[in-house]
């Protein structure tokens, strides 16, 4: 019992002695933001023309905080942490933020072990390029811009987006739900061993290329040479090259080992 109360006391001290809640950077003159980090990342849309980096909130409004934030390191008093990947110019938040023309490069300098999730808030029209490193993952919601995501083990989830989307994972799954599909340039979603699961509005005009080298392709769209209802298995180990609603932008979904799912919304 004593241990538990000490623990609770410790936690409250932590919450109160919270090092830094968030970091904000203006996006004036910026058209694209490039983010690299190794942790769980959320990308949400906001109303101001700013990038806000904060922590992920859990459902009960509890904010996670970075593991090392609250340990008061006596030995570090008067010293500044330095990182191998660059200089922290975010007042100790652990990021290197550099502007190159109209691109903002946002690089997380801390390791996976030192983070417990990050939330990025950005305007919905800003182009994004996200690199989740070896262990991170990305959950993106509400953007209508050009998005590029590269992930290794972590999954990639995009909801309420329009594209164009270029995403790639090694092991993680890719899940995308489109509100409508931007027709300007191709959408390509690829995974080595994970699944690729995409939902499109039923009236989307698109040229489809669907392929799973060692798995199966499932869809409930009316793919030309199949007549049955419901989700059907479409040709294992072959590329499905077809059109929906008369054809339109190229949508390419593929996985080497995992399955591909294409759903009507």
């Amino acid at each position: 019992m004593k241990k538990v109360s000490t623990l609770i006391a410790f936690l409250s001290v932590c919450l109160m002695a919270h090092a830094q809640k968030s970091y904000t950077h203006s996006l004036s003159g910026i058209k694209k933001v490039v983010v690299s980090s190794n942790t769980t990342m959320e990308f949400k849309t906001g109303n101001s023309n700013e990038l806000v980096i904060g922590h992920i909130e859990t459902k009960d409004g509890h904010q996670h905080h970075d593991h090392n934030d609250d340990q008061i390191d006596e030995r570090a008093k008067g010293l500044t942490p330095i990182y191998a990947g660059g200089n922290d110019n975010t007042n100790g938040f652990g990021f290197s933020v550099e502007k190159e023309g109209d691109v903002l490069k946002v690089k997380d300098l801390k390791s996976f072990m030192q983070r417990s999730g990050l939330r990025f808030t950005l305007p919905k029209g800003i182009d994004l390029s996200i690199d989740t490193g070896n262990l991170g993952s990305a959950d993106v919601n509400g953007f209508d811009s050009d998005i590029e995501v590269n992930s290794n083990v972590g999954g990639v989830v995009l909801t309420n987006v329009t594209g164009p989307i270029t995403a790639r994972t090694s092991t993680g799954n890719i899940e995308v739900v489109f509100t409508e599909v931007n027709q300007t340039s191709p959408i390509s979603l690829r995974s080595s061993t994970g699944a690729v699961d995409v939902s499109l509005p039923a009236n989307t005009k698109a040229n489809l290329e669907l392929k799973s080298t060692m798995g199966n392709v499932f869809t409930d769209f009316d793919v030309k040479y199949q007549q049955e209802e419901g989700m059907k298995v479409v040709g294992a180990n072959r590329k499905i090259d077809t059109q929906i609603n008369g054809g339109g932008v190229l949508i390419k979904l593929s996985s080497s080992v995992g399955n591909v799912y294409l759903r009507k919304k």
């Binding site: 691109v103 182009d127 590029e148 594209g163 164009p164 270029t166 340039s185 190229l250």
Partner: peptide, 12 residues
């Protein structure tokens, strides 16, 4: 182009 989607378009 700096958008990978547009580069894919060009290749296609």
């Amino acid at each position: 182009n700096r958008s990978p989607s547009k580069r894919i378009q060009a290749v296609n």
